[in-house]
Design a protein around this nucleic acid. Structure first.
Lengths: 338, 338
DNA sequence: CACTGGCACTCGTGATCCCTGAGTGCCAAC
DNA sequence: GTTGGCACTCAGGGATCACGAGTGCCAGTG
């Protein structure tokens, strides 16, 4: 078991390294943090921490650097989440309040997050999985051509054209529209398949084929739109990485272009609360020297999507976590209001 | 006036430099291209080219490098557009044919372009300015609440909610829908304001206020959607730039994040034909060491939007131009079909 | 007059060497 | 368990040097 002071030493190492970007030695530690012991003692502690794999030295005869495992311990046990200052909070709110529609909210969020953390920000569009149906509209564009419009509680609108095998009468369309709305409005997407299952039976046999097609299209829309979109921003912040650019930055940029990778990254985050994935904990190897801080956000109780930032493992975890959490909260508020 | 051979020398310098990324000297030139003259002669030509500002030497006692002005001359007078090989063409077509909707077309295009040119690709969504109206739909969600749906010939769908000051009867809505469609279907967006101007007069005085509101919303939608969106891809290719990373790459990444800058960049491109902006010809200073190759694309005769790539001034212009042109053509075809 | 070969000069690049200093590990003493 | 002392290790930063690609100029040739 690690003694109290050793943990303190680890914390000091992480803080210094994050600040200076340079390996930190025993002497500097005792000076900058007022540990009440001599450098020699700290050296002993460091040797122990190194044995346990929390820190490492890049070269023999250099200072120590935290390992992924060290950061892990730091995040789990040693660091809290640093709340934002109230001017910062106000700035966030003002900035987000200016948004005019969903696209704008997401766009502003990603810029805000990138600016606040000075890292790469990733924001997932509110997913439809947990959303509810606000309204379904059905209308005839031509005798055998229907348009299906789906409006969600997050303000998203999706539409599909349906080419019918046989034309439906206006009254049938109106009837279907009414029945559809009465059974799915306000319901979760996940519930919809079950709810509409028996609908065709209420209609004449001749229309059932067409109606089934309409319903199939609706379900398809729900599924397709569950494929989540996301946007990223602040890639210019990657240039603040290290000095050994090309090799560090390239795989990260490549990973960021793969939406699939990013979605998986955010998807791995636990349901509630903030998730921090450090270095090699990220499945994707291009991101093995980066950390991902992510959290769910949503308009109500439950998260409808995730957002987060990607940065070097050597990042200011408390500050980053604070910013991510705060932004997620405000976005949730905005979504709830609109 | 530059003699024939001097132009030939400039062409050789550009080609070699693009290939090797290293300043090119007189001896290497005579060897690799079979100019039928001695190095000394080439040196004289180079001195002349340098006097005229087409090439420069990074340091005294180093080879020559083309200047922006040199690339300009190369592009204008010395280089053609290199057509793609037919396997490449087939690959493009196959890849784009797989697209399922507009978002997918644009997404695939940007990936394709990035991969083909190994540079950063920028694709603008088809703008509505030159688009035509395919259909307008109007429907009552609630007594005093209408939904307006606009479908464009590029496959984009936009919708707006309209909260009416006074409810409209169903027949009035149907009538308005019919009149609207008969006067705007197939028309250019730009024409719409003029065409709908007199519509309210056909209705009862009591409904005119509401109808004007509906029309105003329609016009607003047209205007708003004229604000063009775009997406970029292939930023990882920036890492192939130079060896002096941070300073080169950072301003470019920053510029790429500013949609406004990019839109202006593409917007500057001339109406028809391909535009190449080299180095300092780009207004934005972050892009002063990059070149932008852009071209319009569209479903019909006229361009509805632009696409292009951003890369180092030291790029393979003929190849890049060929790829950009080819992709634009195929995207145009796809849009026309759908 | 255009081209060529020769030649002296420039200067960036990379290799080698050395020194300095921060940092370590170990040990004996408190 | 903590501390001071000490020998050892190396990465990084100059300084020096030789190399060689490349240039400009000039005198000679067709």
């Amino acid at each position: 078991m690690l003694s109290e002071r050793r943990l303190e030493v680890l914390r000091a190492i992480v803080q210094d390294y994050v600040g200076t970007e340079e390996p930190v030695g025993s002497k500097a530690l005792t000076e900058r943090h007022n540990l009440q012991v001599s450098p020699a003692t700290v050296r002993n502690d460091m040797a122990a921490l190194e044995d346990d794999g929390f820190i490492a030295q890049p070269h023999k005869s250099a200072g120590r650097v935290p390992t992924d495992k060290g950061y892990r311990l730091f995040v789990d046990k040693l660091a809290g989440v640093k709340p934002l200052s109230s001017p910062e909070r106000r700035a966030i709110q003002n900035f987000l309040d200016g948004a005019v529609d969903l696209d704008d909210v997401v766009g502003r969020t990603v810029r805000l997050l990138a600016q606040l953390t000075r890292q790469v920000a990733v924001v997932q569009y509110p997913s439809l999985t947990r959303s509810t149906v606000r309204h379904v509209e059905l209308l005839s564009l031509a005798p055998a051509r229907l348009m299906l419009v789906l409006i969600t509680d997050t303000g998203r609108v999706e539409q599909r054209l349906v080419d019918c095998p046989a034309p439906l009468g206006e009254t049938t369309v109106a009837d279907l529209r009414a029945r559809l709305n009465s059974c799915v409005t306000g319901q979760r997407f996940a519930e919809v398949p079950r709810l509409v299952q028996d609908l065709p039976e209420a209609f004449d046999a001749e229309d059932r084929g067409t109606i089934s097609l309409v319903l199939a299209t609706l379900l398809e829309t729900l599924v397709e739109e569950t494929e989540e979109r996301l946007i990223i921003g602040g890639t210019a912040n990657l240039t603040r990485f290290g000095h050994d650019f090309p090799l560090t930055i390239r795989p990260v940029l490549e990973a960021l272009e793969e939406q699939v990778v990013l979605l998986k990254l955010l998807g791995e985050a636990t349901e509630s609360g903030m998730t921090v994935r450090i270095g090699h904990e990220n499945a994707h190897e291009g991101l093995s020297s980066t950390s991902v801080v992510s959290v769910g956000y949503g308009s109500g109780e439950e998260a409808v999507a995730k957002l987060g930032v990607v940065g070097p493992t050597r990042m200011d975890y408390p500050g980053t976590m604070g910013a991510v959490r705060a932004v997620a909260r405000y976005v949730g508020q905005i979504l709830a209001e609109s």
